[in-house]
């Protein structure tokens, strides 16, 4: 089963001499219930790919499919509602609305959709992030790691088709990173969630089932069942290839 699929996706900025191809003819499938990491050096187009997959950005060429919906055909309003109902997000920083409590942040996508939360599911998600009695605290009163776990819970609460995480551990220490990544890993294993994560950290990538490597907007290589070592090896290999 494929959750998200791209067909010949390209993203081009500018024109003529200053033309930049951020993405060039990327075709890739993301399996349902799988944890995929996207890696690559700065400017490789990994964030652009994530934004195109998540309906935050529009590719200049090709198609993006979420299940049987072609994102590239949807208008602004439909995309917004699709993000709300079928996609979850975890950003690198500034994930939470400062005026809302942790719990209110978690249920925000449902509130925006005017939907009642599924009580059982909500309890399960909340228990998993292990915030305990801090649920009614404002984000400013939570640590960076706690904030990211709240963000993860929010991403899961609407049982989205896929969760996109953009460098979710970029601002965290190693312990908090392990918490967050462990949580994403469990959501895939235990709840059958689909997760796509952009990262530059081999250790983070090792939590995934599969790693995609991007360079210069092209899909260079991929690695199934990665470990931190194998990811690091692959990165060195690609660097050498690049240099040579």
């Amino acid at each position: 089963m494929v959750a998200v699929r791209t067909v010949g996706v390209g993203k081009r900025y500018g024109g003529g001499e200053t033309r930049i191809d951020a993405l060039d003819d990327v075709s890739v499938d993301f399996g349902r219930g799988r944890f995929t990491a996207i890696m690559g050096p700065s400017g490789s187009g990994k964030s652009t790919l994530l934004h195109c997959l998540a309906g935050l950005d529009r590719p200049s060429a090709g198609q993006v499919w979420l299940g049987d919906v072609e994102l590239t055909r949807l208008d602004e309003k439909a995309l917004t509602h699709l993000r709300r109902d079928r996609i979850g997000f975890v950003f690198q920083a500034f994930n939470l609305v400062p005026t809302l409590s942790a719990l209110e942040n978690i249920t925000l996508p449902l509130d925006l959709a005017n939907r009642k939360p599924d009580r059982e599911w909500l309890d399960k998600v909340i228990t998993t992030i292990g915030l305990g009695d801090r649920l009614n605290h404002k984000p400013a009163e939570l640590s960076g790691g706690q904030q990211q776990r709240v963000a993860c819970a929010r991403a899961l609460v609407s049982r989205p088709d896929v969760v996109f995480a953009d460098e979710p551990t970029g601002n965290l220490d190693s312990r908090s990173s392990a918490d967050v990544l462990g949580f994403l890993h469990r959501s895939v294993r235990e709840f059958g969630q689909t997760v796509v994560m952009v990262t530059h950290d081999p250790t983070a990538a090792a939590y995934a089932d599969r790693v995609l490597f991007l360079a210069d907007g092209r899909l260079e290589s991929e690695l199934p069942d990665p470990t931190a070592e194998s990811v690091l090896d692959m990165m060195k290999q690609l660097d050498a290839h690049e240099a040579g």
Binding site: K77, T80, R84, F89
Partner: peptide, 10 residues
């Protein structure tokens, strides 16, 4: 931006 990303419409 965040609110828009997680699905707040105009």
């Amino acid at each position: 931006g965040l609110l828009r990303a997680i699905g707040m419409d105009r």
